[in-house]
Amino acid sequence: MKLTVNGIEQEIFSPPLTPLLHVLRDELDVTSPKAGCQQGGCGTCTVLIDGEPRRSCLTAVAAVDGSEITTLEGLGEPEQLSPVQAAFHERYAAQCGFCTPGMVVAATALIERKGGPVERDEVLEALGGHYCRCTGYVKIVDAVMAASRGQTGAREDEPETGEEAPVMIPGSPA
C-alpha cells in the first residue's frame, strides 16, 4: 500500500485493517492526529483524505490506499503558520491543545470548501463533532471566522479605536 502524507509518498507495511490513525502515529511518526476516543466521537484524530476531513481512527488504511493525506504538519511551519493556525495562535483558541489538530484540519477544509468568509452556524456544523474540554469553544469559533476573513497577523489585543487603552504592566506581552 502507498499513501502520500503531507506531500511525501510513503510505502505502508502495517496490516491492511490497521486504523489510519495508528499508521500515521506509529508507523510514520506523524503524531499531530491524536488518539482521543478511538470510536469516532471526539474528532481530534481528523485528517484530510484527498481534501476531505475524515476520522482516521475509524478508517482502515487499506480503504484509502493511494490517497493523499494531509495532517496538521502539512499545513504550516512553526515560523510560517497557515491562516487557520495563525488565527488559533493569535486568538488563544488552544489551551491544552489536544483537540487543536482536528479542529484546525477540519476548519481548514471548511474554509477551503467555502472559499470565503464562513458564518457562525457553518462553523457549528463543521466542528460540531469535535470535542474540546478546555476552551468552551468561544475562541475556536472566533478564530475560524477570523481566518476565513483573512484577519490574521494583526495584534489581537490592540485597543479598538475609541476604546481606552488598557493599563498594562510593563513587560507584558499584551
Binding site: Y92, Q95, R133, T135, G136, P166, I169, A174
Partner: peptide, 17 residues
C-alpha cells in the same frame, strides 16, 4: 487580571464545564 485574555479563556472554559 495579569493576562485578561487568558482569564477570559478560563471563564469561558469553566462556563462550559
Amino acid at each position: 487580571a495579569i493576562n485578561p485574555t487568558l482569564v477570559e479563556g478560563q471563564i469561558e472554559g469553566g462556563a462550559i464545564m
